[in-house]
C-alpha cells in the first residue's frame, strides 16, 4: 500500500457567533495522533470537520493533505457506538459501504478481515448475538473494509471493560499501522499507550503534549507510559478546573 498522506488542519470554528476554537495541527503520515481535552471544547467538531459532516457552525480555515488530493472521501470513521445494523449479519455489515454506494461487496475480503479481527466463526451471526468487545471488533473490521488511507476514531473503546479495551487497543494499533490515524479520547492511559503524537485541546487552544519516547504501542505497565499518563491526567484536571 502507498504511504498514506499527512493531514494539516488549521483554522477557527464559530458556533452561534462565538469562537469555539482556533486550532492548527498536523497528523503525520502513518502515525497515530491522539486528541484529548475536556468535554465541550470541540474535539468531536474537529473530527466532523475532517469528515465533511454537518457541524452547525462556521469553519474558517483549511484542511489539506500532503499529496494535494482532497481529504474528503478518503477517510473511514469509527465511533464509540459500533453502529452495526442489527438486521444484517456481521459479514453483510462489513459490506454495507459497498451496498450504500450501489456496488457489490467483496465477500472474500470481508471473511478475511473478520478472521483478522478474530471473528472468523461469527460472520453469519447478527450483531445482537455478539458481546460488546466482539461488536467493536466487527466495527473495526468494517473500518478496514473501507480501505481508506486516513482513519478517524471517536472514542471507539471507551464503552468497553478494561481488559477488552486493552486488547482492542493492541488489535487496532496492529491493523491500522499503515494509516494516518486520529483518535479522539478521554482516557490519558489510552493516549499514552497509542499516541505517536498527543494533542491537548483546551479553551485557549491546542497544544502538543510530549509523547513517551518509546514507539507505540507501549505496554500498559511500562514506566514511560505510566509517567506520561499521570502527568497528562494532572494537566487535563487543571484544564477542566
Amino acid at each position: 500500500m502507498n504511504q498514506p498522506p499527512e493531514i494539516t488542519f488549521s483554522g477557527h470554528f464559530m458556533l452561534e457567533g462565538r469562537e469555539l476554537f482556533d486550532a492548527c495541527f498536523v497528523m503525520p503520515s502513518a502515525r497515530w495522533t491522539c486528541l484529548l481535552g475536556p468535554s465541550g471544547v470541540g474535539k468531536s467538531t474537529v473530527l466532523r470537520l475532517l469528515l465533511g459532516l454537518e457541524t452547525g457552525g462556521v469553519f474558517m480555515g483549511n484542511i489539506s493533505s500532503s499529496d494535494g488530493q482532497p481529504v474528503a472521501g478518503r477517510i473511514s470513521y469509527m465511533a464509540q457506538s459500533d453502529l452495526l445494523l442489527p438486521w444484517l449479519s456481521v459479514t453483510d455489515n462489513l459490506m454495507i459501504g459497498a451496498s450504500l454506494r450501489g456496488e457489490t461487496g467483496d465477500q472474500k475480503r470481508a471473511v478475511t478481515l473478520l478472521e483478522r479481527v478474530g471473528l472468523g466463526a461469527h460472520g453469519h451471526k447478527k450483531p445482537g448475538a455478539l458481546s460488546g468487545g466482539m461488536r467493536q471488533r466487527a466495527a473495526l473490521a468494517r473500518t478496514l473494509m473501507e480501505d481508506r488511507p486516513i482513519v478517524l476514531l471517536d472514542e471507539p473503546f471507551s464503552a468497553l471493560d478494561a481488559g477488552t479495551r486493552a486488547d482492542m487497543q493492541e488489535l487496532a494499533a496492529e491493523l491500522l499501522s499503515d494509516k494516518t490515524v486520529l483518535l479522539v479520547t478521554h482516557d490519558p492511559a489510552e493516549a499514552s499507550r497509542l499516541g505517536d503524537q498527543i494533542l491537548v485541546m483546551g479553551k485557549t487552544g491546542m497544544d502538543v503534549w510530549p509523547a513517551p519516547q518509546m514507539p507505540a504501542i507501549r505496554a500498559v505497565d511500562a514506566p514511560e507510559t505510566l509517567d506520561c499518563q499521570s502527568k497528562l491526567l494532572a494537566h487535563l484536571r487543571a484544564l477542566a478546573a
Binding site: 469528515l51 465511533a79 453502529l83 445494523l85 451496498s99 450504500l100 454506494r101
Partner: peptide, 17 residues
Amino acid sequence: DRGYLDLAKTMGGARMQ
C-alpha cells in the same frame, strides 16, 4: 440514530441507497 447517517455519509452512500 444520527450516527448511522454520519457513517453512511463518510462511506459515500447515495441518498436512495
